[in-house]
Design a protein around this nucleic acid. Structure first.
Lengths: 264, 264
DNA sequence: GGCAAATCTTGATCTGGGTCAAGGTGTGCC
DNA sequence: GGCACACCTTGACCCAGATCAAGATTTGCC
C-alpha cells in the first residue's frame, strides 16, 4: 500500500494520512502542506483569495493517466501530494520519462493549452488545479506568482540538465546510485529529517518506471540494485524501502565530484 | 573559417559579415539582429533605454571559455551572434553538453551569481551583456522582461526534455538524424529561408562537440555521418556543410512520429 | 610551398547493457 | 487457503557502440 505523507506542518503522530484523507473541498490555503513551496509561495492574503476562487482539487489513483500528450488541458496545477511523471513515448514503445513531479511541483504551461507530454500518476496523487484562463490573467498582474513560476522553471531546467548528464554519460550503476541519492535528498528535504549518516526512504517508482527515468531496461535496473545491495551500499526491506547505511558510500558510486561545488 | 551571419534584417548580399564586423560599441537596439527574439523582445522604447544604460558587448573566439562552472559571473547576457554551449564535465573527463545557445538565447540565472555549467564559445561569439544587479532590479519592475524570460525558459525546458528522449532512448543513427534536423530547423528559422525540400546548412559543431551533445564518441558520430551519406540521406561538402536532398528522408531516420502532433 | 597541429575517417576488437527466457515473491480477491 | 496478477530477480546470449589504433584530410603558420 503506497502511503504518502502529506501531513501539513507538524503532523508527527505515527498515524499516516492517506491521500483520500485530504478532503477535496476548498481547503484553506493556510493549512495547505505546500503553501510555502508551490507557485503560490510568495502570495499575500488577497492574492491567495483570488487563487482560491479559481481553484479546485482533483485526485488520481496510482497508474492513472492525468493527461495524454497533445490533449487540451483547461487547467494548470500544483502537486499537493504523491508523485506524477512526465513522459514521452515513441511509436515503437520506447519510453523516456522527462520529468518527475513531487509535492509543490507545477504542471502545465501558461499560454499553451495542449500538453506536450503524457502526465501520469505514479502514486496516488492530489492536484490543486487552477482554471487556465483566470490563472493566466493573474500571471500578468501578479508578480508574486510570475516571479515564483520563473524561479521554479529555472530549477526544473537545472534538474533537467543534471539529468542529461546522467542519461548521456553515466554507467548503469552510476545512474542507479544517482537516482537513489536524488530521491534520498528530496525525501529528506520534505521530511525535514536530519541528514544523518543513516538514511532510509521508500522508492516512489517501480523498477520499470526507474528504467524509464534512467534510460535503462527494467532488468538492468534490477541487476544494478542487486549489485549495490551485494556490495553493501544499500539494504532493501521489501522491494520498495531502501536503507543507506553510509550516504557517502552511495555518493561515491554516482560518479559525481566527491564533494565538488558546494552550491549554496 | 567559421563564418556566422548575423546580418540584421534584410542583409542578403553575398558578403558574409564576420563577427568582428559587429562593432562593440553601444549599438542602437533598433538595429540589433536579435531585437525581436531576445529577452528584450517585448520592451518599449523607454525600457530599451534603461537596458541600454546597463549593457556592454563582449566577444569571444571559437574555443574560448566564457565562464567556468562554479565561477562568479557579474552579468547576464544574450547571444547576439555565434554559438555557445553549456556543458558539464566529470572528474574522469566524460563530458556532456547540456545546452546549445544560438542567437537570441539567454545566458545566466537571475538571483544566482555563480554559474552551474561551463559556458564555451563554440564558434566566434558576440554577447550583449547586462550588469547583473541592475538587470535583476529591472526584472522586478519590468513585466515585459520577466514575462519574456519566463517564456524563453519554458522553451528551453521543452528543448531539454526533447533532448532527454534523444539521450535516453535513441540509437546512434537516430541521434545524428535528430541533431541534424534540429539544426536545420533552427538555421532555416534564422535565415527565414523557405523550408523547401532542399535544405543546406553549416554544422556549428565539430564531431567531438556533436559527440558531447549526443552522448556518443566522436568515432561513432563520424561513422553515422558516413552511414547517412552512404544511404543518400545527406550529402557533405567539406566536413561542415550538409545538404539534405529530401528533408522527409532525414525525418524518417529520427525515429520520431512521422508527422505527429503538429504543435502550433 | 611545406610542415605541424587539428580534425576527421575507417578498421579491428571488446564489452556493457539489451534481449529473451524462466522462475520467484508479494498482494488482493474469491 | 489458493489462485491470479503485478512486480521483481536471475541467467544465457547477443549486439550497438565504446575503445584502441592507424592513417587521411584540412587548416594555419613560417
Amino acid at each position: 500500500m503506497t502511503q504518502i505523507k502529506i501531513c501539513p506542518g507538524s503532523c508527527d503522530t505515527g498515524a499516516k494520512m492517506q491521500h483520500a484523507a485530504f478532503k477535496l473541498d476548498k481547503v484553506d490555503c493556510s493549512a495547505c502542506p505546500i503553501r510555502h513551496r508551490a507557485v503560490c509561495a510568495r502570495c499575500e492574503e488577497d492574492e491567495l483569495e483570488r487563487l482560491n476562487a479559481i481553484k479546485f482539487y482533483r485526485s488520481y489513483k496510482a497508474g492513472e493517466t492525468i493527461v495524454w500528450a497533445g490533449d487540451a488541458m483547461d487547467f494548470v496545477a500544483s502537486v499537493v501530494g504523491g508523485v506524477a511523471s512526465l513522459s514521452q513515448t515513441m511509436e515503437d514503445g520506447r519510453r523516456q520519462m522527462v520529468g518527475l513531479l513531487l509535492a509543490s511541483d507545477f504542471i502545465g504551461r501558461p499560454n499553451r493549452n495542449t500538453v506536450a507530454y503524457d502526465v501520469t500518476a505514479v502514486s496516488d496523487v492530489t492536484l490543486c488545479c487552477f482554471r487556465r484562463k483566470p490563472f493566466e490573467e493573474m500571471l500578468v498582474d501578479t508578480p508574486h506568482i510570475s516571479q515564483r513560476l520563473l524561479e521554479m522553471t529555472l530549477d526544473e531546467l537545472d534538474a533537467a540538465r543534471e539529468w542529461m548528464l546522467i542519461l548521456g554519460r553515466k554507467t548503469a550503476r552510476e545512474k542507479i546510485a544517482s537516482f537513489l541519492s536524488i530521491i534520498a535528498r528530496r525525501e529528506s528535504a520534505t521530511d525535514g529529517a536530519e541528514v544523518g549518516s543513516d538514511v532510509a526512504f521508500d522508492l516512489p517508482l517501480t523498477r520499470e518506471a526507474m528504467a524509464d527515468y534512467l534510460g535503462l531496461t527494467l532488468e538492468t535496473v534490477s541487476r544494478q540494485m542487486s549489485g549495490l545491495k551485494r556490495d553493501g551500499v544499500i539494504r532493501l526491506e521489501g522491494k520498495r524501502r531502501v536503507l543507506v547505511p553510509d550516504f557517502n558510500l552511495l555518493l561515491d558510486e554516482t560518479g559525481d565530484d566527491a564533494d565538488g561545488g558546494v552550491l549554496v
